[in-house]
Amino acid sequence: MTNDHGPLSGYRVIEAGTLIAGPFCGQLLGDFGAEVIKIEDPTHGDPMRGWGAEVGGDHLQWQILGRNKKSVTCNLRTAEGQDLMRQLVGSADVLLENFRPGTLERWGLGYEELAKDNPGLVLTRITGYGQTGPYAGRAGFGSVGEAMGGVRYITGDPDRRPSRAGVSLGDSLAGMFSAYGTVLALLGRERTGRGQVVDTAIYEAVLALMESLVPEWQLAGQRRERTGSILPGVAPSNTYPTADDSQILIGANRDTVFTRLCTAMDRPELAKDARYASHAARGVNQHELDDLISTWTRSLSAADALERLHADGVPAGLIYTAEDMLQDPHFAAREAITTLMHRSLGEVPMQNVTPRLSSTPGELQWIAPDLGQHNDEVYGGVLGLNESERTRLAREGVI
């Protein structure tokens, strides 16, 4: 089964990544039609197979990271395993890996070596610090990349230690930028006929999101600090409590929108109050204004407050949990959450493909495969190894 109309249909990706950054890149490419062949250690497979919430022996995060992929086992620390990888890469458009720099080269699988037989190959490499520079050889996880890239310092409340975002932000950003870079390299190949190396450093993927943080310090002498749920000088834009112990987010910092908020609150006079009449004034009186809005939201249920806000055109929304997402009619109408069938779990809900393309959309085809599920299909069908040879390789621990 393949997504023949996906924009990456016809491209073959060999994924040798583990954990999140590399596999998330592979997931994104697979979502849009690429044939993703995931190389896994024969003994344990990708560590993500054993991470996160577990139901009946199956770990749920793996079901998403492994979707739309084919799993083959290969011991890359053996000469025969390296030869199998070389053969697979010879038939591929992309090799995706997130080993430490130099690992592929030690195995005789460096780019120069692979490109001799496959000059159109795109090698996408994800590491903590990139392939060059004094830190290149260091072990690097997404959390360290978040710290070095700047997002950890500015995340959380100002009176507490820097906080984690709640998801593996650094890894996921690196995976997204790597998918973007891979597609750019494939487009470049259309013009030149040659592949290239895509070098993604996790800390640089995080750094790319840091807006004007660097020039603010260098040119204005201002250092961004943790500010909790507010953006200093931009008001009102915060979370507010309701009578039923919910939290809603209101973003009404623009003058015209603030006027509509005042109407929804039955306090139209606030829009003309000198303390709140302009963006700058609201920023100066931010905390006082938040207190006024909180007094109003506490008098209403979340549903009633949001009904009033939406009726008056004020951007606002509930702070969603997974339960809220699964019950929301807008999520349902757009199929933002869909399901894939698992052999023992039944229907597994998960986020759908994004973005949406009108003519060549992405598609969820199958849930994460079992370890080595596609050994026969790939080693037999792609490489032409007969059954007795595959049996021998399995017996010797190569696959």
Rank of each mutant, 00 (worst) to 15 (best):
N3M: 05
G6L: 04
S9W: 12
I14T: 11
T18G: 09
G22Q: 01
F24D: 06
L29T: 01
D31Y: 07
F32W: 01
E35C: 04
D41N: 15
R49C: 06
W51V: 10
G56S: 14
Q63Y: 07
Q63G: 09
L65S: 04
G66I: 03
G66S: 06
G66D: 13
R67E: 11
K70T: 10
S71Y: 02
C74E: 04
N75E: 15
L76M: 14
T78I: 09
E80C: 13
L88R: 06
S91W: 11
V94H: 03
L95F: 11
L95G: 09
P101L: 08
G102N: 00
R106A: 11
G108H: 01
L114Q: 00
N118R: 04
G120C: 05
T127V: 07
G128Y: 05
A136L: 09
G137V: 13
G140V: 02
F141Y: 15
M148T: 10
G149E: 13
G150Q: 13
I154K: 07
T155L: 05
D157V: 06
S163V: 14
V167L: 15
S168R: 08
S168L: 12
A174Y: 07
G181M: 02
V183C: 04
L184F: 02
L187W: 00
E190M: 11
E190A: 06
R194Q: 13
V198C: 09
V198L: 11
Y203N: 05
L207S: 02
A208Y: 08
E211H: 09
L219Y: 12
A220W: 08
A220Q: 14
Q222W: 08
R223G: 10
E225V: 14
E225T: 08
G228R: 03
V234F: 11
A235R: 00
S237W: 10
Y240V: 00
S246C: 12
S246N: 14
L249Y: 10
T256F: 05
F258R: 04
M265G: 07
M265C: 12
M265F: 12
R267Q: 14
P268C: 12
L270K: 12
K272V: 13
R282E: 10
G283W: 04
E288V: 02
D290Q: 13
T297W: 03
A302F: 06
A302P: 12
A303R: 12
A303G: 14
E307S: 11
R308T: 00
D312N: 10
G317T: 10
A322F: 15
D328P: 06
D328C: 08
H330E: 09
H330L: 01
F331E: 05
R334N: 02
L340A: 01
M341R: 14
H342P: 04
S344W: 06
S344D: 09
V348H: 01
N352L: 07
N352T: 02
T360Y: 02
L364F: 02
Q365K: 01
W366S: 00
W366Y: 13
I367F: 00
P369S: 02
L371K: 06
G372N: 00
H374W: 07
N375G: 04
D376F: 02
V378W: 03
G380N: 06
G380I: 00
G380K: 00
G384A: 09
L385Y: 07
E387A: 10
E387K: 15
R390P: 04
R395S: 01
V398H: 01
